[in-house]
Design a binder for these strands. Structure first.
Length: 865
RNA sequence: GCGCGCGUGGCGAAACUGGUAGACGCAGCGGACUUAAAAUCCGCAGCCGCAAGGCAUGGGGGUUCGAGUCCCUCCGCGCGCACCA
């Protein structure tokens, strides 16, 4: 054994061993209990970032721990390889997205291997490969057959200069990121997947997901958003034609408070009125500008304009004016909402702004109502007033009565409404999975026959920002109609990349199968016993995966409904943000590595300056590591300097996995120090000579104490890895054990035996986190077998036995004293000992003891007045 | 704006089921070793106070013998908001 710890040599040796032994190759074995440990696969952006290191270290710790617990572990990895950044890189560098993507994958794969993750690379999935995405296409066609996939129009961001559709992130302050042109909303035909048909099941099944964080379940439930309400029709005439304007509301009890209805700019009524009114036409055009993002819409200054048209109130027969509202979107519901300013805060503000009437129709405990100022009780449930025959009814009764009356007139019906909308999967982009359809002038839209799949995406195109290059590629577009044989046009839209990530975890289970999407092996491995990924995916990715898995279930392809049994949402990795804001121009961000932090004598931060020019920079607090804030730390530089184990150790020690983690160079340095200390401790022990077998009967009191601590630590570490998933506390416990070991007088053979066992527990306990150094140390402690192949030991109950415990004594809620009592002391004895304690007596003084509460093993609480 | 979280020493955190607030580590300070430095080892350390003791878990209020933990409210920060992944 070398005297000093050399991470480069140690890590290479351990990785060579795992490679040659095929340690992490997973095989289906019905006789063994499987454990599928799944981490969210990365987008191949170029290099690994710290978020990846954290995510995959968590997965690797759990995988290695479960493997040592005897489970048949599968830990796969792959690449979420389609997406926008590849097109952006292509535009910037003139390199085809495919080449850029494959090069990034090669780099990042090397980095993952350098970190020593126990991955089964024989199951690698790359979503931009035809052998993967052909099954996207195949399943899409099955959904089309079952009516789960269908076509309708959807709203997109349109850049009128580049003549192209933009992603939300490419719209900045309502303008195109490259052209600066004002963005327009545009309605185009798209394909949708009917996730709302599964809404009830996706919502109901959340209750059974006990291995998911409560907050993720709550977020999903709110996102699905089941609400029971009433669809109400407001009749109107357009020329000679009788029509109705439909709105949905959960507050039908406020129907008599309706003083206007608002429609989207794209609504036929708006278009009709605008044709006669140039001012309105201008407003409608203005409404069509701006992004389609809900966050933008919600923070928008609510504006509107009267159309001069009106619809008929379905119960009172009164004329209700129709307004165009910039906050109403055509795609959601029927593109119209009813305005009840008396009892809806946003409608109230809108009515005040435009002088529309405000009518109280709900009374809550007779509180005085004023149309001058909004009060929160206006929106609460109460009893109807000013609502004709419905006066006096409460919310439920009024909704029921109004719904029944509307239904009788054919002007409304009770309806369950979902906030969840169907999933639009069409993207007007090149670097994605082609949608397998053909447009024929004679036959319409024709699916590509199964035997012609996959529709292969050409990999040599370079997008230029003006639309999808596929549409300009004749060799791709030109085709024959599979039905009639006439010349036809191939669909050039590609699929949302969320499609790719909705089932990759199923494909991991079925490597090499080019005859079917999945096979029986999926039912061995699924559901994933543990899924680990960023909290930012709490809603969309997880919901789409739950939906997609159910569709595959209903097609008889898999046996499970829920793909992820347990979910661990890791927090963000953050770092300090430094910037300078020049008087004119853009804010410049500086990487924290280039900034020197100034502190006072007590270590308090007083300021910061750029190392390059010594001039001060401003602090922007701490934020998620990102390119835009220039506050990322490159894991590779760190690994090159300290080694993979130190990177892994710091990541696991700095914070529990679900909390955000703040980067710190100094703390990372501390992780490196601890590993050196561990190495030295083992080195000192093994070079001091042979160790006799441990005889528990021969131990001194201090030997017994160290042995108890070692077994306590083992028990705690086991619980922390397995049940609690708090790796930081497991590591802290081993640090305490190592402190005790190095302090222990190991001059007798018996003491050496105790130290030997304690070191074994420290090495085993850390092995899931720092697998390379522990691989070497385990051998150094005299074990021929690799530590990863050792069974996880159990703590010896006999070693844990304690004779006496210290109890805290509180007087009137404050800690005043401590007493030693036997472990098996009865409550009366403990009470007597507490009251007899001189310090307790001093604090009780002349007061009468009213009550004594004894919490066994913890404390005694004396209440006196 | 809406939905969901989080907030504890100079810093990252611990306190698991309502029961000793600050384990473990970073930074800091003092000492040992060294010609010296680095590395390493030993020790100190929430704040106020000589001490006794008091005050402290973002602010305010409540429940309880007892609250970091439960409830209400306000403030700050983070994540998501459907075409970033």
């Amino acid at each position: 054994m070398h005297e000093t710890y050399d991470p480069v040599a140690v890590e290479a040796a351990a990785q060579r061993h795992w490679d040659s032994a095929g340690t992490f190759r997973a095989l289906e074995d019905p006789g063994r209990e499987k454990y599928y440990c799944l981490s969210m696969f990365p987008y191949p952006s170029g290099r690994l970032h710290m978020g990846h290191v954290r995510n995959y270290t968590i997965g690797d710790v759990i995988s290695r721990f479960m493997r040592m617990q005897g489970r048949n572990v599968l830990q796969p990895m792959g690449w979420d390889a389609f997406g926008l950044p590849a097109e952006n890189a292509a535009m910037a560098n003139g390199v085809p997205p495919a080449r850029w993507t494959y090069e990034n994958i090669a780099t990042m794969k090397r980095q993952l291997q350098a970190l020593g993750f126990g991955l089964d690379w024989s199951r690698e999935v790359t979503t931009c490969r035809p052998e993967y995405y052909r099954w996207n296409q195949w399943l899409f066609l099955r959904m089309l057959e079952k009516g789960i996939a269908y076509q309708k129009t959807g709203t997109v961001n349109w850049d009128p200069v580049d003549q192209t559709v933009l992603a939300n992130e490419q719209v900045i302050d309502g303008r195109g990121w490259r052209t600066g042109a004002l963005i327009e909303k545009r309605e185009i035909p798209m394909y949708y997947l009917g996730i709302t048909a599964y809404a009830e099941e996706l919502l109901g099944a959340l209750d059974g997901l006990e291995g998911w964080p409560e907050r993720v379940r709550t977020m999903q439930a709110n996102w699905i958003g089941k609400s029971e309400g009433v669809t109400i029709a407001f009749p109107y005439r357009l020329g000679e034609e009788a029509r109705t304007l439909k709105v949905f509301t959960t507050r039908a009890d406020t129907l008599f408070g309706v003083t206007f209805v608002a429609v989207a700019a794209e609504h036929p009524l708006a278009a009709h009125a605008a044709a006669l009114d140039p001012a309105l036409a201008a407003f409608v055009e203005e409404c069509k500008r701006g992004s389609v993002m809900e966050a933008d819409l919600a923070t928008l200054d609510k504006r509107g304009m009267a159309t001069g048209l009106s619809v008929t109130h379905p119960l009172t027969g009164a004329a209700v004016p129709v307004w165009v509202g910039n906050y109403v979107l055509m795609g959601y519901g029927e593109g119209a909402v009813m305005g009840v300013p008396g009892h809806d805060e946003r409608d109230f503000a809108f009515a005040r702004k435009y002088g529309l009437p405000i009518r109280q129709v709900i009374d809550v405990g007779g509180q005085p109502y004023s149309g001058e100022r909004w009060q929160s009780w206006y929106a609460e449930y109460g009893r109807c007033v000013g609502s004709g025959r419905y006066d006096g009814l409460d919310h439920a009764a009024a909704v029921a009565a109004i719904a029944a009356d509307l239904e009788a007139r054919g002007l409304g019906a009770r309806q369950v409404q979902w906030r969840l909308r169907d999933w639009g999967i069409s993207r007007q982009r090149y670097w994605g999975c082609p949608i397998p359809l053909i447009h024929c002038t004679g036959c319409g839209i024709v699916p590509v026959p199964d035997q012609d799949l996959p529709v292969v995406l050409p990999e040599d195109l370079v997008p230029d920002g003006s639309g999808n290059p596929l549409a300009k590629l004749q060799s791709f577009v030109a085709c024959r109609c599979p039905r009639c044989g006439a010349a036809a046009r191939r669909e050039t839209d590609t699929m949302d990349t969320f499609v790719d990530s909705s089932w990759y975890f199923l494909r991991y289970a079925c490597p090499g199968n080019d005859a079917a999407m999945v096979d029986a092996r999926a039912n061995y491995w699924l559901p994933a016993d543990q899924y680990i990924g960023g909290i930012e995916h709490a809603i969309l990715h997880l919901l789409y995966s739950r939906f997609w898995t159910r569709v595959m279930r209903d097609l008889g392809l898999v046996g499970v409904s829920e793909p992820f049994q347990n979910l661990l949402t890791q927090g963000m990795v953050r770092n300090a943000i430094y910037f300078r804001k020049p008087a004119t121009g853009r804010v410049a961000y500086f990487n924290p590595a280039d900034v020197e932090v100034l502190t006072d004598a007590k270590g308090q931060v007083t300021g910061a300056r750029l190392k390059a020019d010594g001039q001060p920079v401003e602090s922007g607090g701490i934020g998620t590591m990102s390119k835009s804030k220039n506050n990322g730390v490159d894991p590779q530089a760190f690994i090159d300097r300290y080694g993979a184990d130190t990177a892994r150790l710091f990541m696991m020690f700095a914070a529990p996995p679900d909390l955000s983690l703040d980067w710190s160079d100094e703390a990372a340095e501390g992780a490196s120090r601890f590993l050196k200390r561990l190495w030295r401790a083992v080195h000192a022990h093994v070079t001091a000579g042979p160790t006799p077998a441990l005889d528990p009967a021969a131990l001194s009191a201090t030997d017994r104490a160290l042995r108890r601590l070692a077994h306590q630590t083992l028990a705690k570490v086991t619980d922390d890895y397995g049940r609690r998933r708090t790796f930081n506390t497991a590591i802290a416990a081993v640090m305490e054990l190592l402190n005790a070991i190095t302090r222990h007088d190991a001059s007798t053979p018996v003491a050496r035996a105790v130290v030997h066992e304690a070191l074994e527990f420290a090495v085993l306990g850390l092995s899931p986190v720092v697998p390379h150094i522990t691989h070497a140390l385990w051998h150094a402690l005299g074990h021929p077998r690799a530590v990863i192949d050792e069974p996880w030991p159990a703590a010896d109950p006999a070693a844990l036995v304690q004779e006496a415990v210290e109890l805290v004594v509180q007087v009137n809620g404050k800690v005043r004293s401590r007493i030693q009592v036997a472990v098996d002391a009865g409550e009366d004895a403990v009470r007597a000992a507490a009251l007899a304690d001189p310090t307790v007596q001093r604090f009780v003084g002349a007061q009468t003891v009213r009550k004594v509460i004894v919490v066994p093993g913890k404390l005694v609480s004396v209440v006196a007045h």
